[in-house]
Each structure stands twice: as C-alpha cells, then as structure tokens.
Design a protein around this nucleic acid. Structure first.
Length: 492
RNA sequence: GUCCCCUUCGUCUAGUGGCCUAGGACUCCGGGUUUUCAUCCCGGCAACAGGGGUUCGACUCCCCUAGGGGACGCCA
C-alpha cells in the first residue's frame, strides 16, 4: 500500500502555525514511508474563504519548505484538490446517503434550531438536533424539495450504544452515540460541510493515514458512520496533540502570535521553526534536539509521538533560531539577511515612504527601525497627550484591536477606512485618535505614515504591539475588559 | 453541564516493570573565556498530580480522585 497523507487547511485568515505543524508531521510520515503528501484546500465555507488566503497558504508553506506532491496549484491524479470544485462529487455522494437512508433532508429553520438549542442549554442538556424532520413522509419531502423549499441534508445517528474506534496513538476510544449530533452534511447553499467533504475526499484521494489535531476526536463517530454508509474502509487515524498557549489553552492569536507570517517577518528561519515544531509532541530516538526535516524523516517513528498538549514556548524557539543563525556561513548569513527584508521587493514597499523624508542616507535607518526591528519598550509616559487621557488611549487601542480583527484585507486603504470609521464612531478627531496608535506601533509620535506601517508589519505584529501598548498603559482588568467590549459593541 | 482526551522539573521532553541517587534541552542563577556586549565553556536550582491496588519490585500496568484541555455550529 502506498502511504498517502494530506494537510487540509481552510483558506480563511492568515496561514496558521498549527497548519505548518500538521503539514510537517503528515509530510514527514509520508516521506518516511516512501509515500506522498497532498495539499487540499477546504474552502466549503463560502462566506469566509478567500483567494488571497489560499495564496497566502501556498506562500507560507513553501517558505517553510513544506512542499507537496499533489495540490490545487500543481495538480495530480486525484484532483481537483480544491473542495469548491468538487461540488458535483459531494452532491452525488449525498444522494447515495439519502437513498440508503443514512441521511435525511431537514427543513427546520434557523429560528427553530436556535430556539431548540436555547431550550436545551437552559435545561443543561447537550445541544443536539431533535429529529424533527427524521420521520417525514418521502412524498412530502419530494414535494417540498420540488417547490424549492430550503433544506439541508443531515446524518442519521444511532440512538443507543457506543461508537468504538481505534486511534493510532491513543488506543481504543468509545463515545456514546447519544453524544453525537445529527450533523448537517449538505448546507442549504448546496455546499457540503467539512464532515461530508473530508470523508469523501480522503477516500477518493486514497489517503491511507490521517494525522490531524485532537480537536477532531469527538467528531470521529460522524466520520465512521459515513465510511460505513459508503461501504469504504477507513484510513488509520492518529490524533496529534494540540499546540498550547503558555496558559495551556489551545494556541490562539489572542494570546500568542499564531500567523506563519509573523515568524517570517520577525526573522525566524523556516528550518528553525520546523525543527522547533518537530520537538512539539515528538522526540528523536537518540534525543538530539537540533535536526533537519530530512533527518527527522529518516528517523521518524509514529510510536514516538506523545499525546500531551505541548506549550509553544517562544523562548526556546528564539534560542533554537539563534543556533541556526550562528551555524550559517557568513555568506549564507548575508543572503538570509537580504532575503528577509533587504531585498528589492521588500525595499520597494518601504523606500517610497522614506525617500521624501531623507536628506542624507544616514537618516534612513532611524526612520525604519520599528519596521525592520522590534519596537522599543513603552511606558505610560510615552502616551502623554494634550487632550487624551490614559483611559481614552486604552479605549482607542482596545477598540482598534477589535476593529482590525474584523478586516478581511490587510491593505493600506482598507486599514485607513476601518480606522477612520472607528474614530468617527467614537467621535474622536483622526489627528488625536491616531496619536496613541503611532506610539503603540512605532514607539514614537512622529514616524512614517501609519497605515503603510500597519500594512507592512502585518496582522500579528500589529496585534502584539497594540496589546503590549495597552499593557504599558496599565492593562485592563476583567471588569474593564467587559466594559470595553460593551462600549465597542454599542458604537454606531 | 454532558462526552472525550491528557497528566515526569516553570517550559519542551527521555523513560515501554529492576539500568532512576529520574537523564537531556530552554529559561533562571553562579563562574570562566572575551577591551564592552553577545557567542562559547563549566557549574547550580528544579519534576514522576494525589490515593488505592497488581507485583518480589512501579515513573512505567489497573482503578478512583483532582487538575488541565478539547468537542458539543448550515466554521473548519
């Protein structure tokens, strides 16, 4: 049997370090077995998927050196590899499930489902579909579909007993069927949900081993039901541990930089990042800690993957990155510095901002220190302003973080529009409003244009600087956080 | 709340019943090399969550408790 593994990111937002983590293990395992590693784009969420994000995934994964054997951009024998191009496949498979009775059509409205869920939560029950449309007469269903009444396809789930299955890392797991919801398989827009698409694709693409995050354990029964309904053999599943924040919650951008582009922009070498990721939940047989992806592949042993969730520790990553940087020859080191930011492409986005503000070339570096370097540490005194109080500065920064989070496109004009509308909504003049932002981002009151700076730095770097600025201003208590949230929500 | 997963130094981990006086790495602290700093070198602090079993013998196997995490969407 040929080993085939995949990573299947969803093109929403910035490429995530967790995607690189999963890609690394899937790729290393496949290659250690002489197999193939596939990239599939799971863009079944029409509202959130974007082409820009898909492109960013390619760029980030290639930067990391995690290249794939088959994928949307390079093709392969089992395509298409973009789920939005496989709709007909899902449709026909959903029909099979409908015919066999493994699935049923549901006409329940969103309102009814919301109310149902509210009631169950009030009664402290597990929110779960109540089977309302389960017993509908086939002729009635056909008639309602015929007139175009909106509906979804749901999975039929056994009432009693347990779903038992084998996890390659954790052994046997049993989950009561009563805990499993009648999952929607096809949404009313005709797109499949993850659960249908992943099963159909993994089978059709002949995926032999599924290495995925442990967050998927609880939906495994749904997948097993689907494999059984189709009469397909199941690939072996291995649920890898989830990367954690320092407080041990699931790794999240609120508490840690999670965007691959943050690490790229900050000057982490991809081989160091990958090496560090390879230490998360895994150790080499000889316990060495510094190794390349090829070395990891040569010695890879699934049995050495551990199940406890590892904390993503920036201090150790920094140390490791330093090891890699110092191991470079001077020639290679200079190349890396140039590739990182001092190349023509990158300079092209900075130079226009600097040229008009320069009389002597020696004036350049001090102006771009916060773009090419870490922003200086701040204190409350740095924010002193003739009209804004400390509280107002905090509120501005807090609301700016929230507003920026909603932005789809991280580009200068969009950034401007978002911030302008926020300032207007808060009734603060742009001139005043921008002051704390300048300081938070650059460490100074007078700098290169703000929105170009934001665009250049990227989401994660901006988010972390804004947050640390809020901390420098005394931080926010739980109580104040609530007040700020309300204040933001109630903006016009 | 229900279900599931997890549990060795602060963090990443080694350990697959005797090799454990529990090893390594990061961080931190000391010392050395260095005109400063960094690198580098040497040394130090620091853990088997708790309680029951099983066994001649448990970090290792089983059970319970506690703690942590995840899932509970027409998101993935």
């Amino acid at each position: 049997m040929t080993v085939r593994t995949r990573v299947a990111p969803s093109p929403t937002g910035d490429p995530h370090v967790g995607t690189a983590y999963m890609a690394l293990f899937n790729r290393v395992f496949a290659k250690s077995q002489g197999g193939r590693f596939i990239l599939r784009i799971e863009d079944t969420d029409q509202a959130r998927s974007t082409a820009a994000s898909e492109q960013a995934i390619y760029d980030a994964l290639r930067w990391a050196g995690l290249d794939w054997d088959e994928g949307p951009d390079i093709g392969g024998d089992f395509g298409p590899y973009r789920q939005s191009e496989r709709l007909a496949i899902y449709r026909s498979h959903a029909d099979r499930l409908l015919e066999s009775g493994a699935a049923f059509r549901c006409f329940c409205t969103q309102d009814r489902l919301d109310e149902l869920r509210r009631g169950q939560q009030a009664r402290r029950e597990t929110p779960r579909y109540d089977g309302h449309c389960l017993g509908l007469d086939p002729d009635e269903v056909a008639a309602r579909v015929e007139v175009g009444e909106p509906n979804v396809v749901r999975l039929r789930v056994p009432e009693d007993g347990d779903c038992r299955f084998e996890d390659g890392l954790r052994g046997e797991i049993a989950i009561p069927w009563r805990q499993v919801d009648s999952q929607v398989l096809v949404k009313s827009d005709g797109f499949p949900t993850y659960h249908l698409a992943v099963v159909v694709d993994d089978h059709l693409m002949q995926i032999s081993h599924v290495l995925r995050g442990e967050e998927w354990i609880s939906s495994f029964p749904k997948h097993q039901l689907l494999y059984d309904a189709f009469g397909w053999p199941m690939p072996l599943h291995y649920h890898l541990p989830l990367l954690r924040n320092p407080d041990t919650s699931k790794l999240s951008k609120r508490k840690n930089p999670t965007g691959l582009n943050y690490y790229r922009r900050s000057g982490y070498l991809p081989e160091a990042l990958l090496n560090y990721l390879g230490l998360m939940g895994y150790s080499m047989p000889d316990e060495r800690e510094l190794f390349t992806v090829d070395e990891m592949t040569a010695a890879f042993d699934l049995g050495r993957v551990s199940t406890g969730g590892p904390v993503f520790d920036l201090a150790k990553l920094d140390w490791m990155n330093g090891q890699y940087i110092r191991a470079l020859t001077l020639e290679k080191f200079m190349d890396r510095v140039a590739d990182w930011a001092l190349n023509r492409d990158n300079l092209a986005s900075i130079a226009p901002l600097v040229q008009t503000r320069t009389e002597r070339l020696i004036d350049i570096l001090p102006q771009v220190d916060y773009l090419l370097g870490e922003r200086t540490a701040l204190t409350e005194a740095d924010f002193e302003h003739k009209t804004l109080s400390t509280e107002e500065c905090r509120r501005i920064l807090d609301h700016a973080v929230r507003r920026l989070e909603t932005l789809d496109h991280w580009q200068r004009d969009d950034l401007y529009t978002a911030i302008k509308s926020l300032a207007d909504a808060m009734g603060i003049k742009m001139r005043d409003f921008l002051s704390p932002l300048f300081i938070a981002v650059s460490g100074r009151a007078v700098t290169l244009p703000l929105f170009d700076s934001l665009a250049y730095l990227g989401r994660d770097l901006v988010r972390s600087r804004l947050r640390s600025a809020i901390d420098a201003l005394g931080g926010v208590s739980k109580k104040e956080a609530k007040r700020l949230e309300r204040s933001y929500r109630e903006l016009p």
